[in-house]
């Protein structure tokens, strides 16, 4: 019988703890597939965040370092500088990468650290039960914006757009996983990001719009619709920066 689909060897056999309809799982699979396809599982060190993906060392088949909340990029920087021959990536939520760890993200981009950050934007703090994130949309109700986020709480940060301005960032993409086609495009972007690192061109960053049906208080299907209807119009999408020949990146 012909095999049409097999679980990637880039992931372990552990069952995900993610909620039904949470797209963290899809993003994990894409990364696992890329590690397998690029044959770099044994050469890769991943850095886990604090957030819903904080237990991802159970799922990725490569070595994992667990960082403190917001410090994944700093830890990844240390690992990569210590072992420049290794592929190093961070997997972070929007709170981890765009709030408490914003300085680390931008500074690593500015230094052109040769590592890859995967930024999973679900517009909320999933792990701690659905509080407001730096990416929470205006009007969106969360546990700490119970009447909806208003302008006194600031505006949602479009981090990939910001990073695309930074010279040391070689590749910046903003994608989604709300449809099969979007998943395919997300995988392409992720693969390019890893390739940019393999080629030593600079910092690569992929933002992925993701769901949190549990804390958004909607069904899995509604969550995907919400990504399409609410998040996609606000956050800049596409490849925002691709590498130039000299290194660094071009908008």
């Amino acid at each position: 019988m012909k095999t049409v689909f097999a679980k990637t060897t880039g992931l372990t056999d552990r069952v995900f703890h993610y909620c039904p309809g949470c797209t963290h799982g899809i993003i994990h699979r894409l990364i696992g597939e890329i590690l397998e396809e690029m044959e770099i599982i044994g050469q890769t060190v991943g850095v886990a965040p604090v957030g819903c993906a904080g237990f991802c060392e159970n799922y990725f088949a490569c070595d994992i370092i667990g960082a403190a909340h917001g410090r994944a990029v700093a830890a990844a920087t240390g690992a990569k500088r210590a072992r420049p021959d290794r592929i190093v990536f961070t997997y972070q939520g929007d709170g981890d990468g765009a709030s408490i760890g914003l300085a680390e993200t931008i500074s690593a981009a500015a230094r052109g650290e040769k590592l890859t950050s995967i930024f999973v934007n679900n517009a909320i703090y999933g792990m701690t039960g659905g509080q407001m994130a730096p990416t929470t949309l205006l009007g969106m109700k969360t546990a700490t914006s119970p009447y909806g986020r208003d302008e006194s709480m600031g505006y949602p940060l479009d981090l990939p757009k910001l990073l695309a301005q930074v010279k040391g960032a070689a590749y910046v993409a903003s994608v989604s996983v709300d449809s099969p086609q979007a998943v395919r495009e997300a995988k392409k972007a992720l693969k390019k990001a890893f390739q940019v690192q393999v080629d030593g061109l600079g910092y690569s960053f992929v933002s992925i719009l993701s769901t949190c049906p549990t804390n958004w208080g909607v069904t899995p299907v509604e969550a995907l619709e919400w990504v399409r209807d609410k998040m996609k119009p606000y956050f800049t999408l596409g490849e925002l920066k691709v590498p130039t020949v000299e290194g660094g990146g071009k908008e």
Partner: peptide, 8 residues
Amino acid sequence: YMVYGAGA
């Protein structure tokens, strides 16, 4: 945390 990552 750079020290942390490198040491790890």
